[in-house]
Design a protein around this nucleic acid. Structure first.
Lengths: 237, 237
DNA sequence: TACACGATTTGTACGCCGTACAGAAAACGG
DNA sequence: CCGTTTTCTGTACGGCGTACAAATCGTGTA
């Protein structure tokens, strides 16, 4: 029981922890883009030989998975677990929290897209959403379907948002990004795409928080509808 | 005007066309997964040296962009451009067409996520959607916002669907994939995640056409609502 | 207390990747 | 017919993920 008593392994002390590796990976992603988190770069950042990483993770995919898991685990559940609040505001809080936490790391989001999203944190998030939607009066099946609908919306929005800037570094301000998009949409040919040309400013703001909330509220409105909008044939469960 | 008269360049005849390269890339993606479309593999497939590809495309990203553009260009506009049909069915036709055409190439979808989606075909698709939603009675701004909402839903669903199978080859049947997911969800701990455990079968079917249509119809219902569901503060345009 | 064994780290290496560069062969314009 | 331009190949570079063997360290056991 000498020190903290938790030493059990037989060999030499580890020079690192898994978390230090993930810190390095995230830091590299944050100011180098999705390609910057190579095993060799991570190893160099934490001061070991490249293959030392494989003592902590079986392969690079495991590093990415662990990073995604940690990012999802960082979302603050207290905000939307408070069942005394109206359920719509709780969902909005969750959606905004996720967007804020994740879009701060666009490089990591690029890696997260294409991940399974079935780790413990994703499961916990799904359970929270089911609670929320059950509180809203949905039956279990509809709650689950609505939960996935929200997942698709939240992560789909994030994917399109980070895909919009292909660059390496952290995202500029939202208004800066919208301003950057503006000229391209304003230059839309009114002959070939008349409606698009007329809606140029709205389209430049596709990546805005306003658009995000607009869509989210529409979805919440539909989800809350007591009667299915079109009860016609919806195959299988 | 000897042959077909369209020869203009000065050097030797090209051994390939851009389309042959894209065919090779797509074929490699289809039965080798998203990593199979390396420049070297494409070149080997079409029988040239790796760097010969750079005569046709400036870099690999351009190949991917062209492939995405071609896939999006393959969607059948006639199905949902028919303004005599009810607008909801036209949107459903578009959504199903996109899902069918794209999920046939999961490897390519992996590359498409993270692409800008601002090529000519994406613009044309957006214009079609704006037409549709304008026909439905939406004002230009709401039509544009709803169009993006649908884009997010369609491509978000595709992203989560292809992320669900990490393997190399073409997707199994939908029911097979659902059956494969079932055990993992059925094994959900009812203690930690009671609601998730109760909704296991619904969650296993998250990637189904039924779930896809359920969410789509909810969104269409919300989009068609004549009054904004929550007119409260929605910042900027 | 001594030792053996297992965990950790490193050096080296392999086969991929994207792609830059120089040269050879082909076809057209003058 | 010659020179110019285009296409393709040979070769090479740096980077990637990671497999393998050897060295080192620290603990459990004899």
């Amino acid at each position: 029981m000498s020190e903290s008593g938790v030493r059990r392994r037989r060999g030499p002390r580890r020079a690192l922890t898994e978390n230090e590796i993930l810190d390095a990976a995230l830091s590299l992603l944050d100011h180098g883009g999705p390609g910057a988190a190579s095993v060799r770069a991570i190893a160099a950042r934490v001061g070991v030989a490249p293959n030392a990483i494989y003592t902590y993770f079986p392969d690079k995919a495991a590093v990415v998975d662990a990073l995604v898991e940690r990012l999802l685990g960082d979302v603050d559940h207290d905000v939307f677990a408070d069942r005394t609040q109206p359920w719509r505001e709780r969902v909005e809080a969750l959606a905004l929290e996720l967007r804020a936490k994740l879009s701060a790391h666009p490089g990591a989001v690029s890696l997260m897209i294409g991940s399974r999203l079935d780790g413990p944190s994703a499961r916990a998030l799904n359970e929270r959403l089911l609670q929320l939607l059950t509180d809203a009066g949905l039956d279990p099946t509809d709650a689950a379907r609505a939960s996935y609908l929200l997942f698709v919306y939240i992560f789909g929005s994030l994917a399109l948002e980070v895909a919009d800037v292909q660059q390496t570094a952290p995202l500029p301000t939202e208004s800066q990004r919208i301003a950057t998009r503006q000229p391209a949409f304003s230059a839309t040919s009114p002959d070939r795409y008349p409606l698009s040309a007329a809606a140029a400013t709205t389209m430049a703001a596709y990546i805005s928080t306003g658009q995000y909330l607009w869509g989210l509220r529409r979805i919440l409105h539909a989800v809350a509808a007591p009667v299915p909008p079109k009860p016609g044939k919806v195959p299988e469960a």
